[in-house]
Design a protein around this nucleic acid. Structure first.
Lengths: 234, 234
DNA sequence: AGATTGCAATCTGCATACAGTTTACGCGCT
DNA sequence: AGCGCGTAAACTGTATGCAGATTGCAATCT
């Protein structure tokens, strides 16, 4: 499908028709979502329409549409005649999202083990092998990028568009909480090893093993991330 | 149709707080979603803002907001400077949604078998037993209502809010295609039997069996429904 | 006749204006 | 001093107007 390249060239995006409405509203949705998701704005913080309008130098109409969309995405809460507020992702809900992520990832791994084409398997393995270098260099940023790519390949490999959508959305919402995990000492190497188990299972077509490995991999990431989330909350 | 009477009812709806934003926009979202989902409007059909505004006797502003929300729900497709059109859920995507539904339902059943409280198990069993009567009476409408309730209990029983959200959304999008299955001869009784296997497994706390049973149950529904969808397409 | 370009009607995107609702502050009363 | 109540300010909900984009049609040219 079509979930690449976020912010840089709006015109280009529109031309390529990659993202549906490359309009002002879409830009605002992404900008505001970013602020929420990166912690620039805190849960409960009000998003009043006029301020946003002034800030983005547009009228209130597109702001309202953006807020409505953010509401549908679950990033802000709305009630009639009240300001939209940054959604309070409670720790309990966060936990449920990480758990869901484990389950979804396990499904993807299982289906990928069954359905990936030869080319896809090959590409996954190459991607994985290439990242070994990054582990040795302790290149956290680059490894994070690789990590995203690796998981995306897994999701695609399941050959199910709706599952891909769900897992991608969930992943996006968890992004801010997952971000810091690679700073934990030794996490890079462990992540690589965990990936290795998944890749091996998929190459063998062993869906049960792939599923199991993916599940625990994400569970480990979750634990690491929730620690971070709690830190952040203080 | 029923597009008068709004303004008089608005207060009441808002007061009951049953529905989040009981505003004009929300009512329109539901009304339009209904029309799409019940097949009154067909995929590809245009939803131009002015016509809708006239039809609902409002200005274009709330119509635009409603359309944006419907877009976020996946019920309509939107491109810049073009009318929103009723989303064409391709057969391939439909298939992926049904498959996802099976997987999600299997997860819910497994988690429910592990996590449901005694009260929840009891309520599920009661709900299920009560529906036997509807099967004998061949009360399709009532059974459909029961069916929804039954599955909702299952989803809640998993005790995971995010999974609940995903499964509910997916289910909502599949609703129009699932609707007709109970008209197939003997489907009611079969559905009851399948539910029975699930309930029994959950009461035993046998998560593997519950998961397996739920998976096949939904797979069967999917097959029945896709037949219907193909028919409808002609 | 068929194709192509230009124009007009139509429609969306956004801004602005207005109406209704909520919130907050201050004044008067107890 | 504390408690209400009323009023005004702030903000959301909706309508309307204008500018730019798109589409279909028609007239002209090949």
């Amino acid at each position: 499908m079509q979930y690449e390249m976020q912010s840089s060239e709006v015109k280009q995006i529109r031309r390529r028709q990659v993202i549906r409405t490359g309009t002002t509203v879409e830009q605002m949705v992404r900008a505001i979502a970013d602020m929420i998701v990166t912690g620039v704005m805190h849960p409960g913080e009000r998003l009043d329409e006029l301020s946003l309008a002034v800030r983005f130098d547009v009228s209130r109409t597109p702001v309202r549409e953006a807020l409505r969309e953010l509401g549908a995405m679950g990033l802000v809460d709305r009630e009639p005649n009240r300001s939209a507020v940054v959604a309070n992702v409670t720790e309990a809900y966060l936990h449920s999202m990480f758990e869901a992520m484990s389950e979804l990832e396990a499904i993807c791994a299982r289906l990928a083990a069954e359905r990936m084409t030869v080319d896809e398997r090959h590409a996954l393995e190459l991607e994985h092998r290439a990242s070994a270098r990054l582990v040795h260099a302790n290149a956290q940023e680059d490894y994070a990028a690789h990590n995203t790519e690796f998981h995306t390949r897994l999701y695609r490999g399941a050959h199910n568009d709706h599952i891909y959508e769900m897992v991608t959305q969930t992943r996006a919402r968890l992004a801010p909480f997952r971000r810091a995990q690679f700073r934990l000492p030794g996490r890079l190497a462990k992540s690589y090893d965990e990936h290795d188990v998944i890749v091996t299972a998929i190459m063998r077509g062993d869906s049960a093993a792939a599923s199991q490995a993916a599940f625990s991999h994400v569970a480990i990431v979750s634990d690491a991330s929730i620690v971070f989330a709690s830190d952040k909350a203080e």
